[in-house]
Design a protein around this nucleic acid. Structure first.
Lengths: 179, 179
DNA sequence: TATTGTTATACTCTATAACTATA
DNA sequence: TATAGTTATAGAGTATAACAATA
């Protein structure tokens, strides 16, 4: 079984390194912004509202790939903390038009202010040319994979396997979360 | 507020691209291995056991940065599906020595077999030289950040903010999960 | 009737604490 | 007494379904 253990020991390659370093970068970012009292999810939602003030919760739910009731909870939290405001849309009074408050804009400014240090921490060990190279290569991947600029996952529910689909390890459909 | 919306629209740079593409790569990997009936967490745990057969649950908990009772649940699931086996360690009968079953080794072989296609999918659009470049740059980052080869996060609990620390947005200690 | 948002509810994940058995 | 593992329990997160208001 020494053979087995040797073979199993290290998955490597670009895909794994990406997942590893990406999770690390996301974790450090979460730590940094926690000083501002927000999570990456909060920031993403605030950013989307800032980019298109007045948009509806429904539209956010669709772009986030999340159910409407989930947005209710997220917006509840942000409104309770005074970062976001719901206003009834006079044109269509079913809609809640979302707007950043002054405090919300401040938080976003704070997040922006944190970014350079974060970037430097992640890129420590790379010179300027290497950073550009890396940014370019990652940009190619992001483009090829259809990832929108500025939007990242983390809202989708975890794979979620119920406790009763036991022992069925070889069925055909890999149940793609969203094709 | 057009100014604001313009400024808020796109966070960019290496750190963000890393988080974005890394989450994407991890998601695709999770989809692929779901055909084998396992999650990335399962695979990570199986890999660690394969690399050091007979290790204890406690040692796994420490390496994963997870509480012991969590490992009980994870191992329960893998044992129930026949991929892992608990054996009492005769030398110290408190320990459960963990071993892969034949089925578990098969699953790991299946995971390894999926890797090349996964790598190709992620690296689509990059030629061989670019892949090497990217792997090298990511390797530098992983090394600088102290990321162990073959180990990636995803076991740690989410940032987890309770519902009562409301409105306290400016305290000093960012509560680092693990320094 | 269809759509937006909300509430009620259930289920999963994960941690804390109490407990069992070994040492 | 200390350690490995387990069970019981509680909390957060998220989805589904029923509901209210508006169109």
């Amino acid at each position: 079984m020494t053979d087995e253990s040797a073979r199993a020991s290290r998955p490597n390659g670009v895909a794994f390194l990406l997942a590893q370093t990406g999770a690390h970068a996301a974790g450090l970012f979460a730590e940094r912004i926690s000083a501002l009292g927000v999570t990456p999810g909060d920031v993403g939602l605030l950013r989307m509202v800032a980019a298109a003030p007045g948009r509806s919760q429904r539209s956010l739910a669709e772009e986030l790939g999340v159910v409407a009731s989930r947005v209710v909870v997220l917006v509840d939290g942000l409104e309770r903390r005074g970062l976001l405001q719901r206003r009834r849309d006079p044109a269509n009074r079913r809609n809640h038009a979302l707007h950043l408050t002054a405090a919300g804009a401040e938080v976003m400014a704070g997040v922006r202010a944190l970014r350079p240090a974060h970037e430097d921490e992640i890129c420590a060990g790379l010179d300027e040319a290497q950073r550009h190279q890396l940014a370019e290569l990652l940009g190619i991947i992001a483009g090829r994979q259809g990832l929108a600029p500025g939007v990242h996952p983390g809202y989708r529910a975890a794979p979620q396997r119920s406790s009763r689909d036991e022992g069925e390890r070889d069925q055909g459909s890999p149940q793609l979360p969203r094709p």
